[in-house]
Design a protein around this nucleic acid. Structure first.
Lengths: 221, 221
DNA sequence: ACCAACTTACTGACAGGTCAGTAAGTTGTG
DNA sequence: CACAACTTACTGACCTGTCAGTAAGTTGGT
């Protein structure tokens, strides 16, 4: 999908097939556009955010943006991929940790998120939009949930052992993701919601129930 | 803005100034439009849903819709108010219960929601959209959260007694709302998520932690 | 010179909203 | 009851604005 852009190295023995050589500053230019697009899609949503607004932030026209990304939808896809990479880069240990460390990581993330409201808003708006018909970000959101769920479920079983059933672990994993996302919405609308504290409390609650109440019947059922 | 509609009582000493009365079938017509609008805004979102699509469902033109509601935004507001009324009407006991019964009610709601995906989708899309700049539904969503939070927090304290601090009750209330909303998003995107079971599990977990762990330090903090 | 990186200029689709006109319903008065 | 005087409930044409996307031309780096 995405041919990588090397600086330096003129590559004398180029692949000869498609020979398009971007300029040196192009990589940074694309990154600027990506940042602007993330901001616009984050604050206005994908449908409501315009290419013109994205372009204006980097001082070009909307056609200039299309030159780099081809279409609005392609831009969105790249924004999503770019954000994934950025997220991972923030993690020093390369990838998301497992076991008990994962839960500490989730709480840390919530704490960090208070300082990057824009990112959270973008995630929230896009996730909400994604459940509409034929939304281009639907696949991405779905994948994200699926992966996250399996990672969290694995961590739960790693901590709780085989006593925790697959179903229970899956339920708890969904609940943890859900409570994180749901609290973000409330926090975005109302600062008086204490995002980190509520997140920490909820994750602990769900986790301890998953580990302790393995076969306990549900009083609310 | 809107003078009430009395049947009978011709009001012989009428003010003579403003004299307008809607026709008999108008109430039902407006209700039809409201239903159509709820469906369109629910599946497409407010920004992306068009008046023409709403109009088409009731067999009139978009100008006809505007005749009844004045503007798209006014239509949205009425949809929201109408939905509130419909929700309350479904409750036989008139208003939302308190105490332990509230939590059973929440789980019942989750179970019901599986059978009314459209409503849930509408709520999810609108809530997500509402965090964007100057969204017309923002106030409504915020109010809804605020009221729900205080009701759930009150129920928690009713069940747990004064041992549960205001802060803890507020946190738990936010978490319960959050997990319900967050799970709905996952369920809408992926049917394999068991909405009622996961909701019941999470509410129980959060509730029992709120009641039990009054002053327990947070291991994840 | 060549070509990436643009801009300018434009198209076609679609949005919400306004407006004049029309048909049907309602009401007051004789 | 009858009928004029009015209102309601629309339609359809139109306006303005915005959008993504395209095509062609210009500029400047290598």
């Amino acid at each position: 999908m995405d041919d990588d852009v090397h600086e330096s190295a003129p590559a004398p023995a180029a692949p000869a097939r498609t020979r398009r050589r971007p300029r040196a500053a192009t990589t940074e230019r694309r990154a600027e556009i990506l940042r602007a697009a993330a901001h616009t899609f984050g604050t206005k949503g994908y449908k409501n955010g315009s290419l013109a607004e994205v372009a204006e932030q980097v001082g070009i026209t909307h056609a200039g943006v299309l030159h780099h990304f081809g279409s609005k939808e392609a831009l969105l896809v790249e924004v999503l991929e770019w954000r994934d990479k950025e997220d991972v880069r923030h993690l020093e240990g390369q990838h998301i940790p497992g076991g008990a460390e994962l839960f500490r990581h989730l709480v840390r993330t919530a704490r960090m998120n208070v300082e990057r409201r824009g990112i959270v808003q973008g995630y929230t708006v896009l996730t909400g939009e994604s459940v509409t018909e034929n939304h281009p970000a639907r696949g991405w959101v779905l994948d994200r949930f699926t992966i996250l769920r399996s990672e969290i479920a694995a961590a739960i079983r790693e901590v709780g052992g085989d006593a925790v059933s697959d179903e229970l672990a899956a339920r708890a994993a969904s609940a943890i993701i859900g409570v994180m996302d749901g609290l973000q919405v409330q926090w975005l609308l109302d600062d008086s919601v204490d995002l980190p504290e509520a997140t920490a409390f909820a994750i602990e609650a769900i986790l301890s129930s998953a580990l302790a109440g393995v076969d306990r019947p549900h009083p609310l059922a």
